[in-house]
Design a protein around this nucleic acid. Sequence first.
DNA 1: ATCCCTGCAAACTATTTGCACGGGA
DNA 2: TCCCGTGCAAATAGTTTGCAGGGAT
Lengths: 140, 140
Amino acid sequence: MLLDSTLRASDHRMTRPRRVVWDVLNSTSRHLSAAEIVAAVHELDPGINTSSVYRTLGLFASLDLVRESRLTDDASTWEVAHPDDVIHLVCSLCGGTSHLSTHAVDALRSELGTGSDFHAAGIDVRVTGTCASCAARLHD
Amino acid sequence: MLLDSTLRASDHRMTRPRRVVWDVLNSTSRHLSAAEIVAAVHELDPGINTSSVYRTLGLFASLDLVRESRLTDDASTWEVAHPDDVIHLVCSLCGGTSHLSTHAVDALRSELGTGSDFHAAGIDVRVTGTCASCAARLHD
DNA sequence: ATCCCTGCAAACTATTTGCACGGGA
DNA sequence: TCCCGTGCAAATAGTTTGCAGGGAT
């Protein structure tokens, strides 16, 4: 629905690749790599081409439907756009990513607002470290 | 000097590529892409190979001498490691990057410390937006 | 009927790796 | 002397692009 209306509003057509990629992205709250998205897309429709997935992700990003992150040294990951500022917690052991909202981001935003040197649009916080389950595993 | 002692301490040899890459990185406070580093290195010594530059950057990063950032959609950028947490301000118009330290990062760090779900090691903040000079140019 | 979007394949860019030689300790 | 680090060239991974036909509006 959101997809349909957003596409219409921006003079884009609703097509099968776009529908399927959208469904895949909305089927999880995880960050997905392009390769994972392609795999999941192929499970639903093996006929959809990899380059269409990339083009679709690019389009969705330009429409602010999804958000691209380069959290690790590897490939980009994608997730359905989250309206609020969000902190990414990236575990260096398992590679898992989770979200966190704190008012530290709001605090930062207002600190930035006081200076006139830079107009902030988006704030992206990545915290690297170890998640609880990996930490627990280390203690065994 | 820092380079020399750090290499020694970690059982690595001081070589020409390492010296030259180090000099290049220390000749600026900007973020440099691998390509820029290679170009600057070649100006000092055209015989140094690109792969040696990559290997050197990887080594320096593992020794915490330099810091790799993936601030844009393009290639990684590198800078001499900064001891404190730092916020990157990335202008989406000119691509320029500047630094900023605020206590918002400290605030975030303590907020994270209160929860036990995640142990934070590094905090990386990227703010996208428009820098003062690009904003000024837009008003002409 | 129009022309946007797609599948396909090839191109491209940034980065990594295998190997044999040479220089630093 | 020993073997780590290098230059070289080829390989790799992720992503992008040109093109001609098919489908959405």
